[in-house]
Amino acid sequence: MPFTCITLTTMTENGDATPLVSLVGVNKHFGALHVLKNIDLTVDRGEVLVVIGPSGGGKSTLCRTINRLETIDEGQIIFDGTPLPEEGRALARLRSEVGMVFQSFNLFAHKTILGNVTLGPMKVRKKARKEASTRAMELLDRVGIANQADKYPAQLSGGQQQRVAIARALAMDPKLILFDEPTSALDPEMVQEVLDVMIGLARDGMTMVVVTHEMGFARRAANRVVFMADGQIIEQNTPDEFFTNARTDRARDFLSKILTH
């Protein structure tokens, strides 16, 4: 069954209706493995897109092509009106506008929490230390970690580290944040504190692409759910429709597995 395309155009304050990200005919191989098969996808400004699907389906790879942590073999990715730069300074600048939150946090282990959040603004945006610190403390306060600013990542719990990672991404004032299974490495009792921060961001109008199996988050915060398997987008829909009325067998089968477990 061919997938149906549903466009949920979210107009932002500035009224710009062109998509923030669009992928057109994107193909990607890892050797003989075809991980992204003819992907067409747009992300509108202010939209929260949840990507869901079985492990190995290509969700992380899809996410990582958007800031070119993975290159693509074919097709085009347009971010904010321009094709992704291939390399060099232009690519670094693009990446500074796209935040990324990893499953394993990846906080800079030799830097304090504050140092993690101020590094990008100081070294990439060339802001003064004082200005960067003030802003960093605001963001750390927002994610509830301000009182840990002088500690090192290893001294924090997973949930705290992930909230710092979100603050680090926010410090760059990104136009988009990519989340690749941000709660999958967390102990169950820490999942909600991270999701709460993400829901807050979604409410504030941040454009987000979130790979996650957290249905609660998808229902509360997502505008659209994209179901991916075997390197293809199998179907996409609003969260309510997708979770209650999935159209494809693949999706229904997948949902029955994550629901019963």
Binding site: A92, L94, E97, F102, L119, G120, V124, M172
Partner: peptide
């Protein structure tokens, strides 16, 4: 990866 992702060269 995290370093590249925030835009460091």
């Amino acid at each position: 990866e995290a370093a590249r992702a925030i835009g460091l060269t």
